[in-house]
């Protein structure tokens, strides 16, 4: 690796100044589980990494029923699934946080990093979209919020502008009688990149689907929010037959490629299976709530 400088600011302001000054010659460092690999593979040519882990706001992990859940951008996966509120209120996020990498990776990797890395296969993004997540961003011109389904704009591309840093992820408290789930398919049982993934949420009303959200991983240049899959089943009974309606729409919406991890045909097939299975799990979870 070529020489690179390291800064470890203690405030968002300081981080924004550093990032703004260096522009595309710098990137924030959270868990490093993607960034360090990419630096060694020369995917980025940087002069500076800005360690985000010593900034208090990026380490925040708080939940209360009135304000919802805030996950600092640098909070590692193990803290997320180790938090009892997140476990009980946002199981779909826990699904993803406990299958990103293995134990060691989960000791470092963050959901903020997973989002900013903007890989189509990012496991945590579909369930975060399912939970109506919002990215809280700070930059030279102040702060702004972006819905997570709008955050990734292409492979390794996001809405972040020069000098901006993702501070935290925010999720409203799910409605009553709601449930969510994320599942992915990999040929092994751990340590793999999703061939396809499905993150869904449902709100039930007397045995029917009041609303649903479906997002797919690894089948488009960005995590693919398929709004029509959820809309099509609103008002329908919470059954496998209904899940099949949404999963067929998800399959048709997928725009995958053929590569070493799977073919177009196979990935589309997986979209149907995974969406259906995830919806059924989400429905079960909703009934328990």
């Amino acid at each position: 690796m070529k020489w690179i400088d390291y800064e470890s600011p203690h405030s968002v302001r300081e981080a924004v100044d550093l990032l703004n000054e260096a522009g595309d010659r710098a990137r924030p460092l959270a868990g490093g589980t993607d960034l360090l690999v990419q630096l060694r593979a020369k995917a980025y040519d940087l002069d500076l990494v800005v360690d985000a882990k010593n900034i208090p706001e990026l380490n925040e992990l708080t939940y209360d029923p009135d304000n919802g859940l805030t996950i600092g951008a640098a909070v590692a996966c193990y803290r997320i699934y180790g938090n009892s509120s997140v476990r009980s209120v946002y199981p779909g996020i826990v699904d993803a946080a406990s299958l990103i990498g293995g134990t060691q990776i989960q000791g470092r990797a963050s959901l903020g990093g997973n989002l900013c890395n903007a890989a189509p296969s990012a496991d945590s993004v579909p369930p975060m979209i399912a939970y109506n997540g919002v990215a809280r961003i700070s930059g030279p011109n102040g702060s702004r919020e972006v819905a997570l389904e709008d955050f990734c704009t292409g492979v390794r591309q996001t809405v972040l502008e020069r000098g901006e840093i993702l501070v935290s992820l925010h999720f409203p408290t799910p409605e009553a009688n709601s449930g969510a789930n994320y599942i992915r398919f990999i040929p092994r049982n751990e340590m793999d990149i999703a061939v396809a993934g499905a993150g869904v949420s449902v709100v039930l009303d007397n045995g029917s689907i009041a609303s649903a959200r479906v997002t797919l991983a690894s089948v488009a240049p960005t995590p693919l929010f398929v709004a029509e899959a959820g809309e099509a089943i609103a008002g329908k009974p919470a059954t496998e037959e209904t899940a099949r309606i949404a999963s067929a729409i998800a399959r048709d919406a997928a725009r995958p490629i053929t590569d070493m991890r799977g073919t177009i045909e196979y990935r589309k097939r997986l979209c149907e299976v995974l969406t259906r299975r995830a919806l059924m799990t989400a429905i079960e979870r909703a009934k328990e709530n």
Binding site: S8, G32, T33, L36
Partner: peptide, 11 residues
């Protein structure tokens, strides 16, 4: 926590 030390910077 256990980590893979190749994915942590010495600094």
């Amino acid at each position: 926590r256990i980590v893979t030390s190749c994915l942590v910077l010495g600094v």
